[in-house]
Design a protein around this nucleic acid. Structure first.
Lengths: 341, 341
DNA sequence: GTGAAAGCGCTAACAT
DNA sequence: ATGTTAGCGCTTTCAC
């Protein structure tokens, strides 16, 4: 059984497909009476628009593409949620593509989304990615692109990020205020900007508080639980051990916490700890983890908003790339309690 | 600048669009030589297929739609991941739709996906949903549908679930084996089948182990942290308190754990606890939570597999709805340690 | 092995 | 306010 088309409706009403199309799209030049008739008949015949046909003709697909490293990371799940809310409210659907942190898959993602004629793309860059020309392909095709969180600026595209520098600064200063003095940092790969920014925030917060920046207290990890554990163990071997640790993100902090728990030191009390991301688990572990909230939902909503503006916005007005920087929020919990006397 | 079409390629090679189309689709009746020429020229001209046009003509969109309650729940994020892996490997894309646990949004999701001509749909039912006719719309449109986890059987569609009964049975029996005797259950809404099955598993495991099923020890919650906490407090008020709790899922268990921690009882030792779902946080909290793993990634992969088979499978062969039941795995951690003497 | 022609379902000029 | 016509880019009979 073939599905109902606008021609079927037209036939039933002794009118033309064009009128039906206009009526359904609420075109101003169609009389109220006709619109009502069309809508009623459409419902009767159980008409469902064929979006492919509409898209092919109009050049707009009402779909936005989203590329994320993995839906399994709660951070991205939460951002997607935000994107989807805004998109849906404005009649757009979300086509999802995961890069699995792979450069090749990211490139393929852009291609596939462009082939699917998405009206715009929102992406966060894979860990593996170090060059970015594939994103320019979207520009060449005149498809608006927004990057979030793991963003790169020199592409000349709009971005939504949080102020990683500030978040790290706040986190570090918080440890200082709590009374810690030898504060270590488990950093992430410096080629990824957000991680580098966090390192900078850490360093500057120490300096601003007249604490020496000790190179031994900065170790580089791979942003994972295991890596956090390893790096923490390395820090615990030092002759002059740290009395607190600022970890580049929560999974790293979790690994560090596990490492500390395996020693005779207590956490908190002897070793203060702060993470970054406010991952779901951070509130539930013991001790609960002090961390920096990244405003994931807002990030998704803002990214979607920016994109939709770019899509619907006047193409004539040469809009410069915008940069939205969200304010991180320090979430103080137990892991950064002041040190014991 | 307009994008390259097959006509451009045809013109460049002094051939026809039909030949180009066939060559690009590796049609058997095209000579190798022509195929090579076409492919080379396509690359030169930076040709990208227009999938909308292709879909409109061929009736296949190479897109599968997925409806989940929320991408923010790690369970669903993980399932999506599995779906996407399989889909991508077979050339399909994933169009995502969140119902936010709302019936209305679920109905709209089905509609939108059908309008988008997706080749098939994978869905997990919203908490709010109590009637299911909207799913039949997919059938009427001949669009294959697979339900996972929160599934309903009488629709006559294929499903992928885990054996909730068995998982609950294992969880409960595990507590018995550890030496607990008064085992309570914080249940979920019974109209959702998976929760009802878990209740059944709990009851049967007790009976099979010659323990009385005490109605006072079965309380009904709303499947959330707060609800878990409330129900646990209720259980703690009982004259004959339970010595262990099997919670309907991990968030409920987490709430229960928090409630216990606020008392003088210790957990584990005095009160055993088991959850369900193996949510990410369950491994990280203290004590780590014994729980039942739901094989999320496999669930996603199996669902995608089933769907793709239904899509590509011979439509003549009247395939009966299949039901894949995955085996739950008990994950023993600290929260169910044997009781102190 | 390749080309000509038709048409998927819709929208948008251009008519009236 | 409505109808006519053309065509988005592709696939697919049907020819040869």
């Amino acid at each position: 059984m073939p599905r109902t088309t606008i021609h079927d409706i037209a036939k039933a009403l002794n009118t033309s497909a064009a009128t039906v199309s206009r009526a359904l799209n609420d075109h101003p030049s169609i009389s109220e009476a006709t619109k009502v008739m069309v809508r009623v008949t459409a419902k009767q015949l159980n008409y469902q628009q064929n979006r492919m046909a509409s898209s092919l003709r109009s050049g707009k697909s009402m779909v936005i593409g989203v590329i994320i490293p993995s839906a399994e990371i709660s951070f991205f799940g939460s951002v997607i949620h935000g994107i989807e809310e805004v998109a849906k409210a404005r009649g757009y659907n979300v086509l999802l593509f995961q890069s699995n942190e792979r450069y090749q898959q990211e490139v393929q993602g852009i291609q596939t989304l462009l082939q699917s004629n998405v009206d715009g793309i929102i992406a966060s860059i894979a860990k593996e990615t170090t060059h970015y020309s594939h994103f320019l392909e979207a520009k060449r095709r005149n498809t608006p692109l927004i990057l979030f969180d793991r963003a790169i600026e020199d592409l000349g595209v709009s971005t939504v990020v949080i102020d990683d520098y500030k978040g790290a600064y706040m986190a570090t200063e918080h440890l200082v205020e709590q009374g810690y003095r030898r504060i270590a940092h488990i950093a992430g790969p410096s080629h990824i900007k957000i991680f580098h920014e966090r390192l900078r925030g850490y360093v500057d917060a120490l300096s601003a508080n007249k604490l020496v920046v000790d190179e031994d207290l900065i170790v580089y990890g791979k942003v994972s639980i295991d890596s956090g554990r390893e790096r923490m163990n390395q820090l615990l071997q030092l002759d002059l051990m740290p009395d607190a640790v600022f970890a580049v993100e929560d999974f790293t902090a979790l690994g560090a916490l596990q490492a500390i728990k395996e020693t005779e030191f207590h956490q908190p009390g002897q070793i203060g700890l702060v993470g970054f991301a406010n991952e779901a688990f951070s509130a539930y572990i013991t001790p609960s983890l002090t961390t920096v909230d990244q405003q994931t939902n807002i990030m998704g909503r803002e990214a979607a908003q920016l994109l939709l503006n770019a899509i619907t916005g006047n193409a004539n007005t040469e809009t410069l790339p915008q940069k939205i920087v969200l304010d991180p929020k320090l979430v103080v919990r137990d892991s950064s309690r002041p040190p014991d006397q």
